[in-house]
Design a protein around this nucleic acid. Sequence first.
DNA 1: GGGATTTTGTGAATTATAGCACAAGGTTTC
DNA 2: GAAACCTTGTGCTATAATTCACAAAATCCC
Lengths: 218, 218
Amino acid sequence: MERPDAPPDVVIRRLPLYARSLRYLLEEGVHSVSSQELGERINVTAAQIRKDLSYFGEFGKQGIGYDVEKLLNHIDHILGLTHHWPLVVVGVGSLGQAIARYDGFQTQGLRIVGLFDSDPDKIGQMVDDLTIMDYSRLHAVISEHQARLAVIAVPATRAQEVADMLIEAGIRAILNYAPIILQTPDDVWVRYIDPVAVMHSLTYYLAREQGGAEVKRR
Amino acid sequence: MERPDAPPDVVIRRLPLYARSLRYLLEEGVHSVSSQELGERINVTAAQIRKDLSYFGEFGKQGIGYDVEKLLNHIDHILGLTHHWPLVVVGVGSLGQAIARYDGFQTQGLRIVGLFDSDPDKIGQMVDDLTIMDYSRLHAVISEHQARLAVIAVPATRAQEVADMLIEAGIRAILNYAPIILQTPDDVWVRYIDPVAVMHSLTYYLAREQGGAEVKRR
DNA sequence: GGGATTTTGTGAATTATAGCACAAGGTTTC
DNA sequence: GAAACCTTGTGCTATAATTCACAAAATCCC
């Protein structure tokens, strides 16, 4: 009875796409956009955009559409992107380095406050302006910055123990690049990025193609 | 009427996870597994696993479960992973390099046959045993290897034109890391990996938490 | 060998998600 | 200022995905 109708997670996962598209529109100098136009840009139906937004309020004007800047501000508020979220990255192989170097991670509401690795040779090295630290410093850094977000970019064999450490240290949401499903308490959010699995789902369709009539989409 | 009941895409996207878990089980020397046990490993219900597999045949034994090796072979066959898929990567920044260096890409049914970038300074450089090539060679390389899979790891501003080139050259499935939705013909498959968007969907839940009773999962 | 136990495969029921379609409200045009 | 036109927000309907629950095998154990 507290929350009569919490927005489903599918909706939450689409909001960042709306926000991004609105940012591009803003850069292009577009001031107003209809659900139709926005939908065409991101391959989503107009009705779905309107339905999604309706979970959070009424942001549009009939006959006009949405004010790009206002809607973007609303979505940023909904997503909690009005301030920066401190974040730690564990595993500084080539993937971890790519993450640490990626602009989009450092801007857009996220701020990497710690880079960790278990390899003694890497400890002390710098990636841009961040020093790679030993796991022994995990707890201190996470506490100090009140970080609740983490990225795991270690090999699959190490991912579960790293996750356990992170959660112990106060992390509440994890983006896991290791190809393994993590076992975590119910109050910890985990999302996965698994390019090989994605590729394998694509080979399924390619294997079946060979010049037949297609169905597809999504 | 040709295909009375094609398996939905959600099912196809889960198959690689089943396959991976089975590979781990095989390494551990486990010969037989029930849908229950498999499900617990990857946080999927037993019923869902059985339903998913039933789209493709009957692979289990009542009272026993599944033979790990046999089921793995079946799934690999379904996904077309009985041979290697040639693949090109466009964009050799730190992300593109991480992809090129990542073992899981080079093994597991995928083989990178071309690395491309538009930066003249990078052309000719090597990443492991692969030479970075100019876009002018895209068509030739894709034709030569009959590649139908590609990874896009260029900046968002360049992604659409790269996609157009790739499709023109014969690519039929794209994994896009650029933070932009691609416009492509209906017979081209596109999947997205967008870590910042994922992070932003997590901040939503963290922003709402602050010591209240949780609901979550998924 | 037969009773207890396990586990599959699958129709049926349930739940979740997406799309339709339209009243309501706002704008534009002349 | 009124007719024509847009576009939102949403109740309702349709479709999709998941879970339930159980008959039908297969095994195990005395």
